[in-house]
């Protein structure tokens, strides 16, 4: 029914094997081209304000941002803020993953439960997490719990929905075999349902990890909970434009790291999954 969001990461869809010796060389030259692309981006960002196309007051050149970045990384407070952001992100992601996976398996294992929760999940899922910002402010103020509320709410659905997809993917033959051997429900969850759903859980975690970072920084930015987001807000109010850009760059790098890490973890679990399948098919 719904498209499984396999394409969201960009680039991890297995390329159709156009098998030839060119590939190795191509990957090498692709890496160089990619570096050239990044270099071009940095160069354009340097030149555009230098030649006055955009005021350097709003758009500081790359070198100026780099200076600000260098100043940031020598500042103790920057690392504290980074730590706070990572704490909110990791804790929120953990809670959401555990809750999403547990609830997903429970709902998935009991068909009746699945039938009766479907509409509610479809209704609650698209509710934008930022709608909870005022509530978070009232309840927790600028405490880290405000961040957690938003992060958990937003990433929970990512995990839950993927787990539900995964549970639907359970091979009916495997399940019937397990039943015919009189495996208990718990044993079936343990040996049939969970292994099938695991790759989906990992996909859910990958999607949730990206969403969690966005929401963690958003909460800090808007509510003022401690972290990089709050630091950006401070830089903005004190009109420290290069610092603002430097911090935004840091959040981008953080995002790249989260994506790469989550993809690597996912690929490992998926590789395991597919190799098992390959053996069965052969």
């Amino acid at each position: 029914m719904t498209l499984i969001e396999r394409t969201s990461g960009g680039g991890q869809t297995a390329a159709p094997a156009s098998g030839d010796a060119r590939r190795g060389r191509r990957r090498g030259s692709a890496a160089w081209l990619g570096l050239a692309g990044l270099g071009t981006l940095l160069a354009v960002m340097e030149i555009v304000p230098r030649v006055g196309l955009v005021s350097s007051k709003y758009f500081p050149p790359t070198s100026r941002i780099a200076e600000a970045l260098a100043a940031e990384v020598t500042d103790q407070a920057f690392w504290v803020a980074l730590g706070d952001t990572l704490k909110g992100w990791a804790l929120g992601l953990l809670i959401a993953t555990v809750a999403g996976a547990a609830l997903g398996v429970l709902i998935g294992a009991v068909p009746l439960l699945r039938e009766y929760t479907a509409s509610t999940i479809e209704f609650l899922r698209p509710i934008p997490s930022v709608a909870l910002i005022p509530l978070a402010v009232l309840l927790f103020g600028t405490d880290i719990r405000s961040t957690l509320l938003l992060v958990v709410y937003a990433s929970f659905w990512q995990v839950l929905v993927q787990v539900l997809y995964g549970v639907q993917d359970v091979d009916p033959v495997a399940d019937e075999t397990a039943r015919s051997y009189g495996l208990s429900t718990i044993a079936r969850v343990r040996y049939v349902l969970w292994p099938t759903a695991l790759p989906y859980v990992m996909t859910g975690v990958r999607l949730a990890a990206a969403v969690a970072l966005v929401l963690a920084i958003t909460a800090e930015l808007v509510i003022g909970a401690p972290g990089l987001g709050a630091r950006i807000a401070v830089a903005q109010t004190s009109n420290a434009v290069p610092d603002m850009y430097a911090l935004v760059t840091v959040t981008g790098l953080l995002g790249v790291l989260v994506n790469l890490g989550a993809r690597a973890v996912e690929r490992r679990t998926l590789a395991w999954h597919q190799s098992v399948r390959g053996e069965v098919a052969a």
């Binding site: 990044l38 970072l213 966005v214 987001g229 981008g252 790098l253 953080l254 995002g255």
Partner: peptide, 9 residues
Amino acid sequence: FLRAIPPPV
């Protein structure tokens, strides 16, 4: 990289 920047910032 551009995509990884949390848009609200």
